[in-house]
Computed example of a mutant assay.
Amino acid sequence: MTTAEESGWAPEACTLPTVERPLRLAEFDGLFATALRAQQRLSATVLRWDLDPAAGEVARDLTGRESSCCSFFTFTFHPGDEVLRLDVEVPPAHVGVLDALARRAADGIRS
């Protein structure tokens, strides 16, 4: 597994302390492994995840904390009965971070 910096995960705009970055990455990996049902790239700057609705509280907590240290992320939830849809958006300057996130999600998607 690559480190956060090697994967493009944590740009200079991220204020999360370096020592905490692997822990945050592990939290996202856990969400992907347990709750991610599908992923779709809507545009260069927007990624859509379909999550198990049971993971809603965990996903909201995690994305809220991520937004507080990486303010360039916009996480938008669209609840539904069968799936919790989550759109992840970044400005064009941070497409590389979204690319890295999409790769991690694809590697961890629940089968």
Results as ranks from 00 to 15, higher is better:
residue 4 A to T: 10
residue 36 L to R: 03
residue 92 P to N: 04
residue 62 L to Q: 02
residue 97 V to F: 09
residue 75 F to H: 09
residue 75 F to V: 03
residue 20 E to R: 14
residue 55 A to P: 00
residue 82 E to Y: 03
residue 1 M to K: 15
residue 80 G to R: 03
residue 106 A to T: 12
residue 16 L to P: 10
residue 27 E to A: 14
residue 22 P to E: 05
residue 36 L to V: 11
residue 62 L to D: 01
residue 61 D to P: 02
residue 83 V to P: 02
residue 42 L to I: 13
residue 55 A to L: 07
residue 10 A to C: 13
residue 88 V to C: 07
residue 59 A to L: 01
residue 67 S to Y: 04
residue 104 R to K: 12
residue 43 S to A: 14
residue 38 A to S: 14
residue 29 D to T: 13
residue 56 G to A: 14
residue 9 W to V: 03
residue 38 A to N: 08
residue 19 V to G: 00
residue 5 E to M: 08
residue 76 T to R: 12
residue 45 T to L: 03
residue 82 E to D: 11
residue 63 T to S: 08
residue 58 V to R: 02
residue 3 T to K: 02
residue 37 R to S: 08
residue 98 L to W: 00
residue 47 L to S: 09
residue 83 V to Y: 10
residue 12 E to G: 14
residue 66 E to M: 10
residue 111 S to L: 11
residue 75 F to N: 12
residue 54 A to I: 01
residue 67 S to I: 09
residue 98 L to N: 03
residue 62 L to R: 09
residue 44 A to P: 09
residue 8 G to P: 09
residue 108 G to S: 01
residue 99 D to Q: 02
residue 77 F to H: 09
residue 102 A to E: 08
residue 94 H to G: 00
residue 50 D to L: 10
residue 80 G to H: 07
residue 94 H to K: 03
residue 24 R to D: 11
residue 68 S to D: 13
residue 48 R to L: 08
residue 33 A to H: 07
residue 28 F to N: 12
residue 59 A to T: 01
residue 28 F to I: 13
residue 74 T to R: 14
residue 34 T to I: 03
residue 39 Q to D: 05
residue 100 A to V: 07
residue 6 E to T: 14
residue 10 A to T: 10
residue 90 V to W: 07
residue 110 R to C: 04
residue 33 A to G: 03
residue 93 A to P: 04
residue 29 D to A: 13
residue 33 A to E: 12
residue 110 R to V: 04
residue 26 A to L: 11
residue 27 E to G: 11
residue 55 A to E: 01
residue 33 A to N: 12
residue 74 T to K: 11
residue 26 A to F: 05
residue 80 G to M: 04
residue 30 G to K: 02
residue 6 E to V: 01
residue 43 S to D: 10
residue 55 A to G: 00
residue 107 D to K: 11
residue 91 P to H: 03
residue 103 R to L: 13
residue 9 W to Y: 15
residue 71 S to R: 15
residue 22 P to N: 06
residue 41 R to V: 04
residue 49 W to H: 10
residue 96 G to L: 07
residue 76 T to M: 08
residue 79 P to Y: 05
residue 96 G to V: 13
residue 3 T to F: 01
residue 77 F to D: 04
residue 87 D to H: 11
residue 27 E to T: 06
residue 7 S to E: 09
residue 54 A to Q: 00
residue 3 T to Q: 08
residue 11 P to V: 07
residue 96 G to W: 11
residue 77 F to Y: 08
residue 68 S to W: 05
residue 42 L to H: 11
residue 40 Q to C: 05
residue 27 E to R: 15
residue 102 A to M: 00
residue 1 M to R: 15
residue 72 F to L: 10
residue 12 E to Q: 15
residue 97 V to I: 07
residue 49 W to A: 08
residue 41 R to Y: 07
